[in-house]
């Protein structure tokens, strides 16, 4: 995305001028919740290394209504992130061919979602399989 090299005073409040600008801000802002979740997992990882008592305290915190609410918000943010990321995917790749035919943008986006579902199921089975 190209940006003007300097921010001029006339640009102030640019996000109020078009719904697409607000969606752009929402998309970029979703990364803050992704970062919060990554830091939360990092805290869990550190507490796991610190021992059972610390790890169980971290696990119990998930029942706190605030922690649960932020996780729900992070889940929505991650879904919005996935929708926008996969939608832009065709623009970030060169034209792909398979068997002499060009892969359409639609197919590419569908393929990304299928990959996401397959990987998600795999990770769930792996993590839960390690529990039982």
């Amino acid at each position: 995305m190209s940006r003007p090299p300097v921010y001029r005073p006339s640009m102030r409040g640019w996000w109020q001028r078009h719904p697409a600008y607000r969606r752009y801000l929402l998309r970029e802002g979703s990364s803050a919740l992704l970062a919060a979740y990554a830091l939360w997992l990092l805290a869990g990882l550190v507490s796991l290394a610190a021992g059972e008592a610390a790890y169980e305290r971290w696990r119990e915190l998930h029942g706190n209504p605030w922690v649960f609410g932020v996780h729900l918000a992070a889940l929505l943010a991650a879904l919005y992130h996935a929708v926008t990321w996969f939608r832009l995917l065709p623009l970030t790749l060169p034209a792909l061919r398979w068997g002499g035919r060009r892969i359409t943008d639609r197919t590419l986006v569908r393929g990304a979602w299928l990959t996401s579902v397959a990987l998600s199921v795999g990770v769930w089975l792996y993590l839960l399989g390690g529990v039982r």
Partner: peptide
Amino acid sequence: LLAALLGPALILLTGVVVP
């Protein structure tokens, strides 16, 4: 890419299923 592929499933597991 990683957050898009696995983010929702991981958050659902650790943030919702665990509690």
